[in-house]
């Protein structure tokens, strides 16, 4: 299993448990998020605490997940390490995504 999902205050916290969010598991992330949305939850927090490495396929899967939540949904990311953050910075995706340093901080903002 590369992902674990927990519902907290109506928010699906999707934790990537694999150390690498790359071309091998990117399709699985898209599928996991699609299933959550099909299940009626459109508020999603992606927890990247365990992810040590991400490539452009992983970034594509995150963007796809963001798009799936749509304009009415919420999609935030938390717990990025330095290497993962660099990819968001280089692609300017750090300007588009709401990024929080911890799950608690992200949940606090989403529930405010």
């Amino acid at each position: 299993m590369s992902f674990e999902t927990e519902i907290k205050d109506g928010i699906a916290v999707v934790s990537v448990t694999a150390g690498r969010l790359d071309a091998n598991i990117a399709p699985d992330l898209k599928m996991a998020v699609a299933e959550i949305i099909d299940g009626g939850t459109s508020r999603i927090m992606l927890d990247l605490q365990s992810v040590q490495f991400m490539d452009s396929s992983g970034l594509g899967a995150v963007i796809s997940s963001f798009k799936l939540t749509g304009q009415k949904g919420d999609f935030v990311i938390c717990n990025m390490n330095e290497a993962v953050r660099e990819i968001f910075t280089l692609t300017h995706m750090d300007r588009l995504f709401e990024i929080y340093p911890s799950t608690d901080e992200g949940l606090q903002k989403m529930c405010a």
Binding site: D55, S56, L59, G60, I63, S64, I87
Partner: peptide, 8 residues
């Protein structure tokens, strides 16, 4: 969702 790899 794609086209980022070579630019990165």
């Amino acid at each position: 969702e794609s086209g980022w790899g070579m630019q990165l």
